[in-house]
């Protein structure tokens, strides 16, 4: 019985940990966050201070057409999966030292929402 309780506790704890590592994203809220927190440098369709973001989820790093990347990001060879985008938005300079992107999005929920918004805008217009 004691083993069963311990086992159930581990399962529940694991589920909670998994949940806290990857909160469910809300694309609508992510759109608002994208405009207010990312919009100084980025847009979906135009290269600005940073590259255009439409279709970024699943794209290889350093490959947005027409954008001039830092040497560090050009050679980083990362695929922008949701998990990698979460790491990137958490601390880009720790993930790719030498990158020109320094903006950090501290809240896991905010990151999940922005990533959900980017996923929603995955294909060309």
């Amino acid at each position: 019985m004691r083993v069963l309780v311990l086992g159930m506790g581990m399962v529940i704890g694991g589920a909670l940990l998994a949940g806290s590592a990857a909160p469910r994203g809300n694309a609508a809220r992510g759109g608002d966050l994208y405009r207010t927190k990312c919009g100084a440098c980025h847009s979906l369709d135009n290269n600005r201070v940073g590259p255009a973001h439409r279709g970024v989820v699943g794209r290889r790093s350093g490959t947005a057409p027409g954008f001039r990347y830092s040497r560090a990001l050009s050679s980083s060879n990362i695929v922008w999966t949701p998990a990698n985008l979460d790491r990137w938005l958490t601390a880009p300079t720790l993930m790719v030292p030498g990158t020109a992107m320094g903006f950090r999005l501290a809240s896991p929920q905010d990151r999940a929402d922005v990533i959900a918004y980017l996923q929603q805008n995955g294909s060309a217009r």
């Binding site: 207010t36 919009g39 100084a40 300079t93 999005l105 501290a106």
Partner: peptide, 18 residues
Amino acid sequence: LGLERGAANAYLGLIPSL
């Protein structure tokens, strides 16, 4: 407004990386 609001957030979000 969008640019200024975004810039305020961008500079704040930049601080921990500097």
